[in-house]
Computed example of a mutant assay.
Amino acid sequence: MRITTKGQVTIPKPIRDHLGIGPGSEVEFVATDDGVRLVAVNENISEEERLRRFTDLLDRMEGTLDLGGMTTDEYMEWLRGPREDLDFD
Rank of each mutant, 00 (worst) to 15 (best):
M1R: 14
M1P: 15
R2W: 15
I3Q: 04
I3D: 05
T5K: 15
Q8I: 09
Q8T: 09
V9G: 05
T10P: 01
T10R: 11
I11M: 06
H18E: 15
L19M: 06
L19V: 01
L19D: 00
G20V: 01
I21M: 01
I21W: 00
S25N: 07
S25E: 05
S25Y: 03
E26C: 06
V27L: 10
V27H: 01
V27A: 05
E28W: 00
E28Q: 11
E28S: 07
V30L: 02
T32K: 07
D33P: 08
D34T: 08
V36E: 05
V36D: 02
L38H: 03
L38F: 01
L38G: 00
L38K: 02
V39S: 14
A40Y: 07
V41F: 02
E43P: 03
E43K: 06
I45H: 00
S46T: 11
S46R: 07
E48M: 05
E48Q: 11
E49T: 08
R50Q: 14
R50E: 13
R53E: 09
R53T: 03
F54Y: 12
F54W: 14
F54T: 05
T55D: 12
D56V: 04
D56Y: 01
L57E: 11
L57Q: 12
L58F: 10
L58N: 13
L58Y: 10
D59F: 12
D59N: 13
D59M: 12
D59Y: 13
R60W: 06
R60K: 13
G63S: 08
T64V: 13
L65A: 09
L65Y: 11
D66G: 06
G68V: 03
D73T: 14
D73H: 14
W78Q: 08
G81M: 07
P82A: 15
P82D: 15
P82W: 14
R83K: 06
L86P: 01
F88W: 12
D89T: 11
